[in-house]
Amino acid sequence: MLSKKQARTFFLGGTMLTFLIFIALTIYSFSGEQDQANTLQLNEPIVRGKQLWEKNNCMGCHTILGEGAYYAPELTKVIDRRGKGYIKAVLMSPVSWAPNGRKMVAYGFTDAEAEDLIAFFDWIDDIDLNGFDRVVSPLAKDK
């Protein structure tokens, strides 16, 4: 029968081993040749777009890369689906955008801010999502 000491060894040993493997896999995932997110293409407009995304808690309604609040549409591949003009109109709208009755906050972004957010969405669209990109956005153009 298992003793308390053996049980403690199982806990400590198992935890240390799995955590070390976890760290190793994290390092591997972010090594240059494994990059699936075109990290080197990140530029100032994309980063500003990400900051706007966070500053306004867009994830509190939308989802991106499948993460968010499921209240408003997934925005991965949104440019493929809607086109830049439509997105810009939504972002710059001075009144709440509510195409199907569900209201979006009227952020009234400036032209420059809208361009930054579009740059961010554009960068997101090119990430290799291991097949999810094809499932999440069936209305997107076939690639």
Binding site: A7, Q34, Q36
Partner: peptide, 26 residues
């Protein structure tokens, strides 16, 4: 000890289920 051991043994690497489709290695 056994239960928390099982928790970490499965849970730490189980973090991987959040990484399937967010743009990292498969």
């Amino acid at each position: 000890y056994v239960i928390v051991g099982l928790t970490f043994l499965s849970g730490v690497l189980g973090t991987g289920h959040h990484y399937y489709y967010i743009g990292v290695n498969d």
